[in-house]
Design a protein around this nucleic acid. Structure first.
Lengths: 293, 293
DNA sequence: GCTTTTACCTGACTTGAGTCAGATAATTTT
DNA sequence: AAAATTATCTGACTCAAGTCAGGTAAAAGC
């Protein structure tokens, strides 16, 4: 890695921190402690469960409780017991709180507008697209891939998204029962592995390996959230699967894919997989690939 | 301005604040108050006068004094009277302080490196160039143009830079005495105007108008710092000069320029100036322009 | 029905960050 | 030489932010 790149990133972060810090102090925290303003933001128009507020803001339970009491005293929020479980409590903004939220949102927008205002239309466009680029790549960098239980809640979420997408993509739709299995037991060590990609804790992609012969694995359930595509996350997932396959004692990986999943095919080719003749009778497969790892 | 652009800017700032905040807390402020870490940074390897520290960090004099005492107690810095003026005090890092500074720098670099590490070389390149783009355009947006006394320190700084650059650019060099005047008295209302562009308080460009006939002004001393070129700051300066000229009762602006200043010529053409026959005998001029405003 | 766990609250703290009103010494102005 | 100004320091504050050790009510487990 070049030291020039590092110093650009450092310089960027520093100047940015200083600039946004000025905004935060002057605009958001004008007449109220910052933590309260952030809390109002986080509760939002819909309300939130206290437990979620705590995890999203990353604050101590006692501290949050005190902040909520303070908002209640100011008539900006109310906290009430949950419907089903009366231990779980839900915070909502009062009408006055909603007004305050609007005001906070407005201040933020004013700040952004003031930033864009001196720029020409072309410059604005370049400005926002550069911001999107930084954000996307930062997201990519912040994404972590880890092995999880394929029966866990997050894994299920990804699989459901994946199946729904297959159903939309395949000419004949997709029925899980008709397809070749990749059950939790098959994608758990020592038989296989199930990997999950997370961004800020949220699942945004998955991939699995299932053993089909003593030294041969099959790549299954490769999925990346649409919002994270085009960043090379699929490639990272595949590379990660390959190294886990090696650890599981596999020497070859194979996979099948549908003709409508063109991005997937080109990913496999780019990653060194070569097309082979059909090695199974998956009703949804049009192409079969393999790679010695 | 489009509301989509505004929301992109808002979203970017928010996600960025959160991310850099995590870094600041975990890395920089690990074993020492943030304000002290920033102060060590600001004193730097060379040392700094206390007065400069105060203005750069934007803190209260009493607060800074206490921070400095704290660093002294920890053996990281020492403060001593200035050479000429013994009221002005100068802060320097001790060897232990320098070690600490290195450590802080290293942590920052580690953070940046960790951010770049998961990206491919191509992605890294896109990442840093998008950051540079955001930073440059943010700089441009944060640049303010204001009328100042042409005899002020900042104006003199810009003029010196400008003369030095002319001397390097012109085939025959540049001698102020030979050129057409634009003295402080000529570029001050009601005779003319002197504008300064500032970024974070630092002068980065200038431009002036001098009256040569009751309703005709001459554009003089147009200069933009090399680091800020290519952003359209020259154009903004020129537009600002034009509106000030109108306020001074002028109806026409004219100017002369040298053949080696190609960027300047194209700026004038783009802004609606048309070439005319020579209207003065400036020894350094090759082209003459004018515009009805 | 009893114990354990969960989700939250309360009170008592610590620490960091920052403000403000003088005090003091060196320098400049008159 | 006296008065004013400048640069910094000191002490006495406030206020936000956050931690920690219990405590309580509701729900879940046995």
């Amino acid at each position: 890695m070049e030291s020039e790149e590092i110093s650009i990133v450092r310089g960027f972060c520093r100047s940015f921190t200083r600039r946004v810090g000025v905004f935060t102090d002057k605009f958001l925290g004008r007449d109220r402690p910052l933590a309260e303003a952030r809390l109002i933001f986080e509760i939002g128009g819909q309300g939130q469960e206290v437990r979620d507020l705590r995890s999203n803001l990353g604050v101590d339970s006692g501290y949050l409780s005190r902040l909520l009491r303070s908002l209640e005293r100011q008539g900006l929020a109310r906290v009430m017991p949950g419907q089903k479980d009366r231990r779980l409590r839900r915070a909502e903004l009062t009408p006055a709180g909603l007004t305050e939220l609007d005001e906070l949102i407005r201040r933020g927008q004013d700040f952004a507008a003031a930033l864009l205002e001196p720029l020409s239309p072309t410059q604005r466009q370049r400005f926002v697209s550069a911001m999107l680029e930084v954000e996307r790549l930062w997201d990519l960098s912040a994404t972590v891939i880890e092995a999880v239980d394929p029966a866990s809640k997050d894994a299920k979420y990804c699989l459901d998204q994946y199946y729904a997408e297959l159903d939309r993509s395949f000419d004949q739709g997709f029925d899980l029962a008709q397809s070749i299995t990749a059950d939790p037991s098959e994608t758990t060590p020592p038989h296989g592995i199930f990997l999950l990609a997370r961004l800020n804790g949220q699942p945004i992609g998955c991939g699995a390996i299932k053993r089909i012969e003593p030294e041969v694995g099959s790549v299954k359930r490769m999925w990346v959230d649409p919002s994270a595509r085009g960043l090379g996350l699929g490639r990272r997932m595949l590379q990660s699967l390959e190294s886990h396959a090696l650890e599981l004692g596999m020497r070859k990986l194979c996979l099948e894919t549908n003709r409508n999943l063109e991005a997937a095919q080109s990913l496999y080719r780019r990653c060194g997989y070569r097309e082979v003749s059909p090695f199974n009778n998956d009703p949804y497969a049009d192409f079969w690939f393999e790679k010695d790892i």
